[in-house]
Design a protein around this nucleic acid. Structure first.
Lengths: 360, 360
DNA sequence: GTGCATCTTTGCAACGTTACAAACATAGGG
DNA sequence: CCCTATGTTTGTAACGTTGCAAAGATGCAC
């Protein structure tokens, strides 16, 4: 109860506790670690002293002695966008259930910050990092990390020597596009091509979109592939305005994420374009603003809880064994059909295919 | 360049560096701290050894030696809602510019987690905590912290002995309500009364709403004060549905935050209630989904960057001097008028009053 | 060559913790 | 009463870092 007994400024140590309890440091340590060889009376005396002083073991001292810091880092481009804030929540929660603490490192997608995330975070005795790169090439990640445990969020085309966790973006984009085709759309655009990003997420989604069109025997108009620098509301607005200004004759758009779609939705509303009657819109990530906008947004919902669990588990496994074969984990997702792609108003959920694979 | 020279598993220490460079530990330490008394040639040799081993000083060793950890904590109810994720971003960024790292502690608003946030975080050698309480009473915070540096986010009615940072919620709510009255609304409800929360934010906003009505000579119908458990989309939907079902004759609603308003917006759309023609809606926090929904949402925009700066500055000042008088910092906000409260469609910004005060 | 001043380098101690082994009590059986 | 077995307690060392004082090296003037 009395935590302020040490009001003289210094933080209490085992030594102080030992003095109050009239025993040696070693006995205090034994009490703290539940060693069996402590008499009940002594234990009680020491515990009383701990309570009296409000003693908390120093993490620095423990670490120095060799105890693991139980500190992980999460390096993400931003913490403000719904996708990453939800993911951060899921990762923090799951890590906490394993008694790990997570340090968040916001890189802003800037390559120098990303380099630091990979290299310098061992400074704070972080044991490993879950990293969602935007600008940094995978080869450089591998070169920089130098044995430091890293798990990459996001699929990559090339099979690498680093652990990965992601949904199957190609299949997901294909499902979205298939869905639009199945509702009768034929002039479908893709918004979210990112030639300047190394992450490859946009590429993969574009690939799924292309595949779907090819399967349906629909010719691809190159002007239907819209480039974006960032996956934000602003870009969604700007690119959709441009599309209409350019006179693109489109009846459906696959957006790289929900933010782009919500931005487009607003812009189309301003321009008098009806969604879904004139143009159907679909997104990625299943964010709340896609669920609560009007019309509500058809989207791909990644299983974020499972992404979080897989990433943390993979990271801890990597920390425990630096030499284990790298795992490439694919997390299931689902297609959520809402109003933005429906002809009549309805809301149903279709489960997409899912698989979890580990390769050595 | 060669960071993997220490591939034998152990992390390199000053000792290892010293051995490679052919000097003593102390000389390595001198190089690291830019002591003047090191010969240029020796310095170069040591630096080469550091580079070769990829040596990083151990934070545990430094801390043990008495160096400050430069680690702050941010304890918030959640990291997923736009308000808190934006705030977290601002705080992390600003703290980083001062070379502090921020540890995020998600309490979920549960009282036990909040107690831990105040008390147990000194375990990880955190120097101080910025805390946004939801359930925990201020008196208990004061009792538990026992001298540990804490800055509270959120205004409180009673002048306390703890540092506070917040906007002037009473005035802000009053401005919102005044605005609705000025556009001809008379039957104005308040959604977001929170009798079960200790934080008082809802109370303060309700108070401003009451004051505005009183100033305008409008009688308050008690049924117009809507209780909510959480400030979420879901509650916004549920409460607004209930309002219509109850047959409440309302022409404007002041919502406790943007999420409630966006939820209400969607529900009204489903029920065929027109916004703003039938009911005007206003919110709090200026979140992106309020900016991008349709109609866009009139709201109070708190200066989050300044909240972040004030909170971090206050916390560091408290860390540096435990005995300084507590500061009560009021951060400016602005009223942003958008379509959800307009009769005709327009978008203008009105600056609200602002002040920064410190009391001892 | 010696003495002195200056410039470099180094040994030592301490921070708080814990594992280990050694020392110390206590009680019971011979 | 002594010896051993058992049960408790304690001293010591080490983890990686840094500040201090002392030791060592170097150069210069006499």
């Amino acid at each position: 109860m009395n935590a302020s007994a040490s009001a003289q400024g210094k933080r209490p140590t085992v030594k102080d506790v030992a003095e109050i309890a009239g025993v040696s440091w070693a006995t205090v340590s034994n009490v703290l670690h539940d060693h069996p060889n402590v008499r009940a009376a002594t234990r009680a005396r020491v515990e009383a002293a701990i309570e009296q002083l409000g003693y908390q073991p120093s993490s620095a001292g423990r670490e120095l002695r060799g105890a693991p810091s139980r500190l992980l880092a999460l390096a993400i481009p931003d913490i403000e966008s719904p996708y990453f804030s939800h993911l951060a929540h899921a990762i923090i929660s799951y890590a906490e259930s394993l008694r790990y603490t997570v340090l968040i490192n916001v890189t802003g997608g800037r390559i120098n910050r990303e380099r630091l995330a990979v290299r310098a975070y061992s400074e704070r005795s972080v044991q490993g990092t879950i990293f969602s790169p935007l600008a940094l090439e995978l080869d450089e990640v591998e070169a920089l990390r130098g044995g430091f445990p890293i798990v990459i969020l996001g699929e990559h085309l090339r099979e690498g020597r680093i652990d990965h966790v992601a949904i199957d973006n190609v299949t997901a984009a294909q499902e979205l596009t298939d869905h639009l085709i199945s509702t009768g759309r034929r002039r479908i655009a893709f918004m979210g091509y990112q030639p300047h990003s190394s992450a490859g997420t946009g590429d993969l989604r574009l690939q799924g979109y292309r595949q779907s069109l090819a399967n349906a025997g629909i010719d691809l108009d190159d002007r239907f592939i819209i480039e974006t620098d960032h996956y934000t509301h602003q870009e969604g607005e700007a690119r959709s305005r441009q599309m209409i200004a350019d006179g693109l004759d489109v009846d459906g758009i696959v957006c790289g994420n929900d933010l782009l779609a919500v931005g487009a939705l607003r812009q189309f509303r301003l321009l008098g374009v009806r969604v879904p009657e004139d143009i159907a819109l679909v997104g990625f990530d299943d964010t709340p603003d896609g669920r609560y906008c009007w019309p509500s947004l058809t989207t791909i919902s990644p299983n974020k809880a499972l992404i979080a669990k897989s990433a943390v588990d993979a990271l801890i496994a990597r920390i425990d064994d630096a030499d284990r074969p790298p795992s490439q984990i694919v997390v299931p997702h689902s297609l959520i059909v809402r109003d933005s792609s429906a002809t009549q108003i309805r809301d149903r959920v279709a489960r997409g295919p899912s698989r979890v694979a580990e390769t050595g």
